[in-house]
Each structure stands twice: as structure tokens, then as C-alpha cells.
Design a protein around this nucleic acid. Structure first.
Lengths: 342, 342
DNA sequence: CTGAAAGCGCTTACAG
DNA sequence: CTGAAAGCGCTTACAG
């Protein structure tokens, strides 16, 4: 491996100063074009590679952004996390930054342990990807570091957040069902679990309100426990004609359960999902759902955090990324002759 | 943000030198216990955070390991990549390192563009996670950097690799089918696509050989094209009684296809997968498959790359991580009365 | 257009 | 046990 080539080595070879080499390689003014060319050429020849650590020390920036993913919620949705992290990493790289992912274990979350990344000044900003508990959110406030929430938010703390427009997506989905003649529509999701579940519920509720359909408490079905672990969904009695599920995976679980009981989807019951993730196309029938624009969320999150890095006073509140309803086969219009009371 | 607290600030506050602070905080010898305690306390009070960049410059190490994932293959298997990357990141962190993921786009792969991470000395080592093309593998040889392959290998280059014991896993799975009375067994996977597909095929073949069952060329079925994109699987005529698929997703696709044609799995045909990923439990019936020990692969990969960082001459060749056969419902013993010729 | 000096925050080797 | 000096590789501000 020999000794690594530095600007000084290039300078020595050309009998010039390292300052000039620095200027040339950084395409700064103050070097004649001919010398600049020569320097770049020699740098190439000698296999010079820029030393980021030196730059980092100079300007006190690591050029890394942390992405913290709470372990509690990754259990279910690997594909979403992988895809969005991939975009985040790629977009950061285009901006001269790199992403460092860290998972927040349940133990660290409950002990309010801040990430090592922070204590080692490894990062200039932090994207928190996925819902974390309030105590931890509060503990994080002491971190002297720009940070944003991605894919969730918390009203009790003034933190910038980038989220899908969950409210509007669920509203549109419910409207679609109502246009299809459904009036008995259940919502599947534990309301206090995450901001997404809550906002999707409210979109569903808004649609009911607009169509003057009363909200039935017994048609709000829990899908997970306090820890976000899926539970067996208790079917209500009487049954609705359609189920608006808070995510594709839950729609998948529900459809499996209905099918196991001998029902047919969508003939007996219409079911909708949310996210358009792997479950949307895997489920049979494939799900009518809302596609989350993962790439745009990643891009907005990266742009926002980088803006906050260069200006710590920059805030934007809550940025909504619109989704898109995708109609597949798990939901159909209600036919007049069918009677859906169990 | 004020000015960031440095060791010098702590030293000034206590009227000592920064050397002593460095020793105390690094738990080195040469500071009295009482002073050491005092220094740590003041550091805490002042909100001191260690500056990794300075250390990096000092010893020429970034304390980052790159993880390169070729984009060409991530399309299919997000869950695997997410899980293994999560483990890699976690285990690196335990070793005082951080992971930086970078995807290798198809364009970069064909243009033989080396990752920016390398040119910026951002990493001390590189884990290449997922099959890449030979030309790129060769281009990578010029990188002065410890690197290992994870989840694949290439015979033509002497590179260390950590892989599942694909050969043995497929061998055991095929043995299981043969013990169940199957003798007409097809293999599903495009042989020249990846080392995993090839090795799993060879395990299948070894099992046939041991049981003196001739290999039938028409029972080796392609599942993807040159670019790794899944193709429609052409069913052979005559049909076998069982299919050994090179991965769970392909088993999933095959089962769907068989079911669409009106066949029943496993009553009409037994089908096995490989990986025990999300498809294994999603598919109906759930798949008999081989569980890949992702955590152990990640751990071994991290240990190996860190060993190579501290000693560039360390090599270990090809490390095999054993898998584990999991019997579910997609494969059953052949009953005597059934006749499986189409 | 070119370069000597200083400094970013730490650590190592050495002197007291 | 404590600290002054030097250096890691770059860049910025200033002088020539």
C-alpha cells in the first residue's frame, strides 16, 4: 500500500507549493490554466485521492447525514425502508454527502440513549425515519444537530417533517368506495399507534362526513398492539361491505383471514390498502391502494436536511408528498342485489 | 450553535494541557485518577463531543466501511438486502466503525466507474454485496483497499468471499424430496446468472448423482434473463413431480403459475424455495426452503473486512455459512397411487 | 499567478 | 504524573 499520495507529494514532484496544488485540484482561481492542467495530470498519474478527513477537520463538517431507523417498526416493512434508504443514500451522494444508517434498538429507545453517531460528531444532520416514542423524541431535543422526521411526525414537538399526504390519500380511497355504492365501510388500524394510521383514519372520516355517513365506533378495528406487533383482527358484527386498511400488509392479512373464513374478495367484501408496497401486488387479488412516492419523499428529506445543515435556522414545518390512488382488483362497486349483512 | 467544545476548551477551563485531557478521555495511562475523573466530569458538563475527523486524519483511517450493492439485483429482494445491511451496520458500530451504503447503478457498472467513496478516501474497506459483472470485478482490482464479496463470489479473481453454503443447502433439500419418493425433479434457475444459482444447482445435481438419478437437461428451467429480470417460466413436457427453485421468490412465481393452470401444490407438484425470505411465508402454501443465516453472514463479513483493514495481507478465501432446511407445506412425499406424467 | 504561514482537533513520542 | 512540540492533509487569508 506504500504511503498514500498527498497534495504535498504532487507539489514536490512539480517543485511547486501544495497551496497551488490545492487550488488547481479544487478548480479555484489563482493558478494558470497550463499549470492547473499539468497538476491534474500528475495527480491522476500518481493515483492521488482526495482526503476527506482533512477537509472535514478544516470546516468542521463530516459530510455525513445519519438516518436513524427505530427497530420497533422495521419488522414489518423491509421493502419500504430499503427503497427509501437507497434513494436517500443516492441523493445524498449527488450532493457530496453520504448517509450513515443506524438502527435504534428497543433498549436504546427506552433508555433514551442517543446515537453514538452524534457523540462522535460523525454526522452533520439526522433524518429520523419511522415513528419513535415521545420520551425519545424529547430526549433528542438536546442534540445540537439539525434533524427532521421522515414518514411520521409528532405534534408535540416543533420538528420539521416530510410525510406522505396520508390524510388526502385515505380520503380519496374512501371516496372511491363510496362512489362505488359502499356506505358500510370499516377502518382497520390501531389509531394511537402512529401518525400515519391516525391521519389515514381522519381522511377516511372526512370522506364519511362529506357523504353524511355516520362514523361507527365498532367499525374501527385494531390491527396491532402497543408495540406495533400485528394482532389477529377481530371482525365486527354486523360486517361492513368494505374495509379501508391503513396499509397494504394489513390488507393482505385481512384478505387472508376473510378467505380462510370462506369469503371472497372483492365479491363479498372490498378491501383497500395503502403504500403500494410488495404486499399490494403479492396479495391475491392485488390491492387497490395508494402509491407512496418514495423517491420524492427521499429527495425532499435530503434537500431539507442539507438546507438545515447550511442554515440551522431554516424550518419548513410539515411537508406533504402527495400519493396516487391505484385501482386494482381488491375493491369493486357494490352491486344492488347483494346483501352484505352477515 | 456557538463554538464547538474541544479538548483545548476543557484544558483551559481546568488550567491543564490538552494532552492531559486527551489521555484522560481516552482512558490512557499517565493521568492521576482524581484528575481523570475531574476531566471527564467537566467534559460532560461542557457537552464535549469527540471529534472523529481529527482522529481520522491522525491515523489515516476513516472508520467507515463501504457496502456496495449493485442495483441490477436489488430489484427483487429488498428484504434480504435491508436485513443484512441492518446487521452489517449494527455489527460495524459495535466495532467502532460505520457503514456507508452505496448502490452501483447499471450505468456505472457498465462504464466501470469506481465508487466516489473510494476516490474520496471515505472508507477503509469495501463489502460488495451482490453479484456484479466480471469486467467490473476486474476494474475494482485497481482499488487500493481491502474488499470482500458477500453473498456471491467469482472464481476468476482471488477475492475473499462470505457466502451461504448454497451447495449443501440445495443438496439437503433435494435429498429431502428424494427421501419422499420423488425421482422426477426439476431445477428452476438460469445457471449462468449468479454463483448462488449455480452452486444451488450443483447441490441438486450432487443429490441426483448420489441417488443414481440421471440429470435431465429439459428439467433445468430458466427463470431470468441476462439482466436478472424474471421471465415467464416455461413448463417442461413431461412434467416432473417436484421443482427445486433457486430462491423463494421464484418458487412463489412458479406456484402462482401452477395454480393459475389449475394445479394444486403440493398435491400435484412439490415445490421448494431457498432463502426463507418474505416469500417463503407469504406464498400459499408456505414454502419448504433453506433458511439463510443472515446475521451470521453479516457478522462474518464485518469481522473479515475489519481484519483485512488492520492487516492487508490477511486472506481467508471463501467462507461458507451453513443454512438450515425448513419444512413447510409446499413439498410432500409422493404417494404411490399418484401418477405425475402430464 | 504563486507561496509561506497558520490553523482545524486530536495523538504520539519525548522531555521533565 | 504532566506538558511542549510536532504532525496528520488540507484550505484560507494574506503577502509578494
Amino acid at each position: 500500500m506504500n504511503h498514500k499520495v498527498t497534495m504535498r507529494d504532487i507539489a514536490d514532484r512539480l517543485n511547486i507549493s501544495s497551496v497551488t496544488v490545492s487550488k488547481a485540484l479544487g478548480d479555484k482561481d489563482g493558478v494558470s490554466d497550463s499549470l492547473k492542467e499539468k497538476i491534474k495530470q500528475v495527480a491522476e498519474e500518481m493515483g492521488y485521492r482526495y482526503n476527506t478527513a482533512a477537509k472535514s477537520m478544516k470546516d468542521g463538517l463530516s459530510y455525513n447525514i445519519g438516518v436513524m431507523i427505530p427497530e420497533r417498526f422495521t419488522g414489518t416493512n423491509h421493502s419500504f425502508y430499503f427503497r427509501i434508504y437507497k434513494y436517500i443514500a443516492k441523493i445524498l451522494e449527488q450532493g457530496g454527502y453520504y448517509g450513515i444508517m443506524t438502527t435504534l434498538g428497543e433498549h436504546e429507545e427506552s433508555m433514551l440513549t442517543l446515537p453514538r453517531l452524534y457523540y462522535e460528531q460523525k454526522i452533520d444532520g439526522l433524518i429520523i425515519l419511522g415513528q419513535i416514542g415521545k420520551p425519545y423524541i424529547e430526549a433528542m431535543q438536546e442534540m445540537q444537530l439539525p434533524k427532521i422526521f421522515l414518514d411520521f411526525y409528532d405534534e408535540h414537538v416543533e420538528m420539521d417533517a416530510v410525510v406522505t399526504d396520508n390524510f388526502y390519500g385515505a380520503y380519496e380511497l374512501t371516496n372511491l368506495l363510496i362512489r362505488g355504492g359502499h356506505r358500510d365501510i370499516a377502518y382497520v388500524g390501531t389509531l394511537h399507534s402512529t401518525s400515519s394510521i391516525q391521519d389515514r383514519f381522519l381522511g377516511y372520516y372526512k370522506s364519511l362526513l362529506e357523504h353524511r355517513i355516520p362514523l361507527q365506533q365498532q367499525w374501527i378495528l385494531n390491527d396491532r398492539d402497543e408495540d406495533g406487533v400485528y394482532i389477529d383482527i377481530q371482525l365486527p358484527d354486523p360486517m361492513p361491505s368494505a374495509f379501508v386498511c391503513n396499509c397494504d400488509q394489513v390488507a393482505h392479512n385481512l384478505i387472508n383471514k376473510l378467505q380462510d373464513l370462506g369469503y371472497h374478495v372483492p365479491q363479498d367484501y372490498s378491501v383497500t390498502g395503502f403504500d403500494n408496497d410488495i404486499y399490494a401486488t403479492l396479495t391475491r387479488p392485488p390491492l387497490t391502494t395508494v402509491e407512496v412516492d418514495i423517491e420524492r419523499m427521499a429527495k425532499l428529506a435530503v434537500q431539507s436536511i442539507l438546507k438545515k445543515v447550511s442554515n440551522p435556522y431554516y424550518t419548513f414545518g410539515r411537508a406533504l408528498v402527495p400519493g396516487r390512488v391505484i385501482e386494482r382488483e381488491s375493491a369493486i362497486a357494490l352491486t344492488n342485489d347483494a346483501d352484505h349483512q352477515a
